[in-house]
Amino acid sequence: MPVADRLDLTLRLVRGGGRVTLGELAERLGVSEMTVRRDLDQLQEQGLVRRVRGGAVALDVPAESAGFSVRERWSSAVKARIGTAAAELIEPGSTVLLDAGTTTAELAAQLPGRGPLTVAVLSLQAAVRLADQPGIRLLVIGGESRAGERSLVGPLALGALDQLRFDTFVMSIGAVHAELGWSEFDLDDAAVKRAALRRAGQTIVVADSTKLGVQAFARVAPLEAVDTLVTDGGGDIPTLDAIRAAGVRVALIEGEDA
Results as ranks from 00 to 15, higher is better:
Leu130Lys: 01
Val205Tyr: 03
Gln163Ser: 15
Glu72Leu: 13
Pro155Ile: 02
Val226Tyr: 01
Ala108Val: 09
Thr84His: 06
Arg249Leu: 08
Thr10Gln: 01
Val52Ala: 04
Ala221Thr: 12
Lys193Asn: 03
Ala85Gln: 09
Gly247Val: 07
Arg73Tyr: 08
Gly67Ile: 01
Gln163Thr: 05
Ser209Thr: 12
Arg38Tyr: 13
Trp74Met: 05
Leu117Val: 09
Glu256Gly: 13
Ala258Asn: 12
Ile204Glu: 03
Ser172Ala: 15
Glu106His: 10
Ile141Met: 12
Lys79Arg: 15
Leu13Gly: 00
Val49Trp: 00
Trp74Arg: 08
Val230Gln: 03
Glu91Leu: 09
Phe169Cys: 05
Ala58Leu: 00
Val31Glu: 04
Ala242Glu: 11
Thr35Glu: 10
Glu91Cys: 11
Gly234Trp: 05
Leu117Asn: 04
Arg150Asn: 09
Ala221Asp: 13
Leu152Asn: 00
Leu229Pro: 09
Phe185Thr: 02
Gly17Phe: 00
Ser145His: 11
Arg114Gln: 14
Gly17Ser: 01
Asp236Gln: 13
Gly23Gln: 09
Ile82Tyr: 01
Val205Pro: 03
Val205Leu: 09
Ala127Met: 05
Asp5Ser: 14
Val206Arg: 06
Lys79Ser: 06
Gly142Ile: 12
Pro116Ala: 15
Gly159Lys: 05
Leu107Ser: 01
Leu29Cys: 08
Asp188Met: 05
Arg244Met: 12
Ala105Ile: 02
Leu252Ile: 15
Thr21Phe: 02
Gly234His: 04
Glu256Pro: 12
Leu117Trp: 10
Arg53Gly: 10
Pro116Met: 14
Glu254Phe: 07
Pro238Thr: 09
Gln202Lys: 14
Val49Phe: 00
Val250Tyr: 14
Arg37Cys: 08
Gln44Thr: 09
Asp132Gln: 15
Ala245Tyr: 14
Pro222His: 10
Gly143Val: 03
Ile136Lys: 08
Ser145Glu: 04
Val20Thr: 04
Asp257Gly: 07
Leu111Thr: 09
Ala195Tyr: 03
Pro112Val: 07
Val192Ser: 02
